[in-house]
Design a protein around this nucleic acid. Structure first.
Lengths: 246, 246
DNA sequence: AACGCCAACTGGTCATACCACTTGACCTGC
DNA sequence: GCAGGTCAAGTGGTATGACCAGTTGGCGTT
């Protein structure tokens, strides 16, 4: 087995994860109050600053409402959590959540073509050369993990060219959720990143400054793997349901 | 003037904002190291735990890289920041950033129709009734602020029906950026939220379970205000440029 | 019964001490 | 001279205890 970097989990990290689990898995309903910081510190066997740091981080993502002098209440994460929570929802307790994964694929398919269209509209000649270089690199390797990285680089360049802060931030959030599982997903994504030709067509459309063609080409890059993965996820889901009922 | 709730800014909040400003405005380049926690505490005249809390919160949003024993370095927020940073980018130092606002409008126009299509595909009969009720409420008031709130509720219901975690989280993030400025934006959005008819067409398409029609109808709801606002922002931008050069 | 005060509890902040880790200079042995 | 190990200094990580500041609810007064 290949050597892995040791994971060093700090105390606040641990507390954060535990409280997050309670909130996300419904152990504490929205509107309920959390135990006081002192009490939590006592129960968890850690110092109050450690608890405090975890709760403040959670408050920053709008999952808690902390009131000076009053109690700390849990908010409805489905209504208030931002996209930065995606990594924690995508893989919970070490398992991939099929419904979340499906929605990631759907979002990718919905947004990618729009970004490509914007890039076609705004990208200059330098962009085309850069994209071609990335596709060349993608085509030059046989390793699926490497190919995925090149594909990520490719989309990174497209997003840059789209010159949209919002899409850039969305891309960053999605990448943060995706990258940790990149190696595990290599077989599943092999179909997509193996199609260098589709990327070349997209590159040509972007280089030509043709938004509509670029949109369609991006769809052709993303759709096949999206469809087959969603089908696979559905099958997995049915299977899990059967196991539960047996 | 109407009484306003007092804003209570905690010490870590203040530190967070200051450091964030340095990072976002380029006062500290990516890769550079931050002063040590003790040093920062001394310079800012606050305690180390306060500094620590601010830095940890910043690290959670991937804007800093904190290494135990080593130094804390600044990361490139353009590459790593998630969508949750949007509120702070949209309005910086009290001013609306035109480029960011434009990208919000673009993203809204690109994503809204896709979400509507998903909702049409997945929504049941209960959804149609709920949406109609919201449009009725929207049509029943003359106050632009109230109308905006109803429009938000409308989209909230659509996003719910789309049954997609990712789009839900994106919507939450966008709303978090949008709501604080809701009152200021009332005149700008009046054009859109005044068109109850367009919402009714969209509602009918969703109720009919027709994704393609819903997509087109959503586009018609969002596009007019999007186009005119982007035009207004461009004019504003040119004007600012002229002021700079004069 | 209504009001106002106050004690108890909550989060907010600070100072300080010590632990754990990284770094780089220095020193050793070859 | 240089590869190796050693160690001190500096960094972030954690804990403790104290006190400030705001909220809440009960209890007494009116």
């Amino acid at each position: 087995m290949p050597l892995q970097p040791v994971v060093r989990r700090s105390v606040p990290d641990e507390v954060f994860d535990q409280v997050l689990g309670e909130v996300v898995d419904g152990g504490i309903e929205p509107g309920e109050t959390l135990p006081s910081e002192r009490r939590l510190a006592e129960v968890l066997g850690v110092s109050r600053p450690a608890v405090r740091e975890a709760l403040q981080r959670m408050a920053q993502t709008r999952l808690l409402e902390v009131r000076h002098g009053g109690s700390t209440t849990v908010r409805d994460f489905k209504r208030f959590a931002g996209l930065d929570l995606l990594p924690q929802l995508l893989v919970r307790r070490g398992n991939l959540d099929a419904a979340v994964a499906r929605s990631v694929l759907e979002a990718r398919l919905a947004i990618g073509p729009s970004v490509a269209a914007l890039a076609a509209d705004r990208g200059g000649p330098a962009l085309a050369a850069a994209l071609e270089g990335t596709v060349d690199a993608l085509a030059a390797t046989d390793d699926d993990v490497e190919r995925q990285r090149h594909a990520l680089t490719y989309w990174d360049q497209v997003v840059d060219a789209a010159d949209s802060v919002v899409f850039r931030l969305m891309f960053n959030s999605l990448r943060a959720a995706y990258e940790p599982a990149l190696e595990a997903l290599a077989p599943a994504m092999a179909e997509e990143v193996g199609q260098a030709g589709a990327y070349r067509v997209l590159t040509a459309a972007i280089a030509a400054g043709d938004p509509d063609t670029a949109r369609a080409a991006a769809d052709r890059v993303l759709r096949p793997a999206t469809d087959s993965l969603i089908a696979a996820l559905s099958a997995l889901d049915l299977q899990n349901d059967e196991e539960k009922h047996s």
